[in-house]
Design a protein around this nucleic acid. Structure first.
Length: 481
RNA sequence: GCCCCGAUAGCUCAAUCGGUAGAGCAGUUGACUCUUAAUCAAUUGGUUCCAGGUUCAAGUCCUGGUCGGGGUACCA
């Protein structure tokens, strides 16, 4: 449900709960206390106070009041900071009449406070802070969601992620896992001599993938620009320029439908390694991702242990659709696909029929990681053809959890072949060729291996998230009414 | 885009065959100096997503819409 109108000053009786809290602001100010606080430095985190607990030690902490249990002349509460929660114990005798009354009547669940006191252990054994003084750091004039159930409504969780994060611990853990994964990926590539680079997000010609781009306009130059659908063609220009190992972790934008697996902006890792090839890149991916599974303490149905099988695309398709699949006529393949329950729309080309088999019967059923290699060249116009069989390209698709995690190529560096392949792909679609990219290749690009890794889907797979919206802080939603 | 499903108090959820919209938490008031989903007593809080329609009567049935979820399509 969309949030209620925010203009509570115009509708004073609309939000009784807010009015009550706003009244407390006035009461605090009447006591010369700023309800929105100021600096409160040199605090210790809740986790470190508990980890380095010592009875009677000084403690200074700040956080949001999450629960409270008020009694006559004392109260317990839990405050939460980024590290976790710690219990505080408030007593009238320790604080004095005025401060105790202030805590009891003018603070609410959701308020940020800072406390000073000493550590002690309660009768039930909980490490806590006996508060001697407290400061109000920020009053919350809206209530937090249910303290026990948190926020469950999907729409509100995505629209007001701050509430989701503030009340749902597992959600915070998923995002911390994401942050850690990205940090580990950076460290992985940097430790191997790769340089992190940034290339244009706004491109005059969107290339490197076949997806509908978002269009924007630059006023001073009076030209349309496209939000990038991939960084590939710019990263390859850097290989031409003499960089040998580069990577970029950044956003791509594709103007497509939304789904459990698609957000219009998503985070992509691409890496290029001069003088390597797709098989070396596959080794690299195995090492990177199995390492991440360990680092993030993956516990789920996927077995990430190495080595990961490398299976030729044609072999996988034969296994799924019959050993004679490639001996059939195109019509025979369509008939076989129908028998296998794979729906084929009429305007598909023959290689696309085969690829439907691959996607529905191979990819969707691959749970543990597998590299499917040597795809038909029509599927991958930016990869090098296989020397022994030019109808194939030297590439892999890394599949796990029933979906594509990462493609890897031996990059096509023959400028004449590249031009032909792009022209053929452009076909009737009047897709513009990126002539500057082709000119760059014509100046010479070293042979290279490249990979792309969708960070969002990787994090989904490693954390068990069922929707891409659960690993993106602010996924795209239609603006509310 | 298409198909199916959903929306009730700040939050989490009920509401029988179409018959007075209710509970827990939060809030408010009171009691309580070791509680931890604190407890006890009392209590406030509703445009049942929106607009129509059927009916003596609609949260409930019908039509249209909004937003969301799932599926599907687009996504080399």
């Amino acid at each position: 449900m969309p949030p209620k109108p925010r203009n509570y000053s115009v509708m004073p009786d609309e939000q009784e709960l807010m009015q009550q809290r706003v009244a407390k602001l006035d009461a605090l100010r009447a006591q010369d206390i700023d309800p929105f606080g100021g600096r409160f430095p040199d605090t210790q985190s809740a986790a470190s106070l508990k980890d380095n607990f010592q009875d009677g030690r000084r403690a200074r902490a700040a956080g949001r009041i999450m629960t409270r249990r008020d009694m006559g002349k004392s109260a317990f509460a839990h405050i939460r900071d980024a590290s976790g929660t710690i219990q505080i114990f408030i007593q009238k005798d320790a604080l004095g009449e005025a401060a105790y009354a202030r805590f009891k009547t003018l603070t609410d669940l959701g308020d940020f406070i800072g406390v000073d006191g000493t550590l002690f252990t309660t009768k039930t054994g909980e490490k806590s802070i006996r508060v001697e003084s407290f400061a109000l750091l920020a009053k919350a004039i809206r209530p937090l969601p249910d303290k026990w159930h948190g926020l469950t409504d999907h729409e509100q969780r995505y629209r007001q992620r701050y509430l989701d994060l503030a009340t749902n611990d597992e959600v915070r853990k998923v995002f911390l896992a994401r942050i850690r994964a990205v940090r580990e990926i950076r460290a992985f590539f940097e430790s191997r001599g790769f340089l992190e680079v940034e290339t244009p997000m706004m491109q005059p010609i969107p290339g490197g993938a076949a997806a509908t781009p978002f269009v924007t306009h630059h006023n001073a130059l009076d030209i349309d620009l496209y939000l990038r659908i991939a960084p590939e063609l710019y990263l390859k220009r850097l290989l031409v320029g003499g960089f040998e190992k580069v990577f970029e972790i950044n956003r791509n934008f594709r103007n497509e439908g939304l789904s459990r697996k698609h957000n219009p902006e998503f985070t992509m890792l691409e890496a290029y390694w001069a003088y390597a090839d797709f098989e070396l890149m596959a080794d690299l991916m195995e090492e990177l991702i199995s390492g991440l599974a360990t680092t993030l303490a993956y516990s789920g149905p996927i077995d990430w242990s190495r080595p990961w099988p490398r299976v030729r695309y044609h072999d996988a398709v034969r296994k799924a659709a019959g050993a004679d699949w490639f001996d059939l006529t195109p019509e025979g393949r369509r008939a076989r696909a129908a028998e296998l329950g794979v729906e084929i729309v009429s305007d598909l080309e023959d290689f696309e029929v085969t690829n439907q088999i691959f996607e529905k019967l191979v990819e969707a059923r691959t749970i543990n990681p597998v590299f499917y290699t040597h795809l038909p060249r029509e599927l991958v116009p930016l990869a090098k053809q296989n020397p022994a069989d030019p109808s194939l390209v030297d590439v892999f698709e890394l599949i796990a959890n029933g979906q594509e995690l990462a493609p890897g190529y031996s990059e096509l560096n023959d400028p004449i072949a590249q031009r032909e392949r792009l022209q053929h792909q452009a076909g009737g679609e009047q897709q513009r060729l990126d002539e500057d990219f082709l000119a760059a290749l014509e100046h010479g690009m070293p042979p290279a291996g490249g990979i792309g890794l969708g960070i969002d889907r990787l994090v989904m797979t490693l954390t068990g998230a069922e929707s891409i919206r659960d690993v993106i802080f602010f996924p795209l939603l239609k603006p509310g009414a």
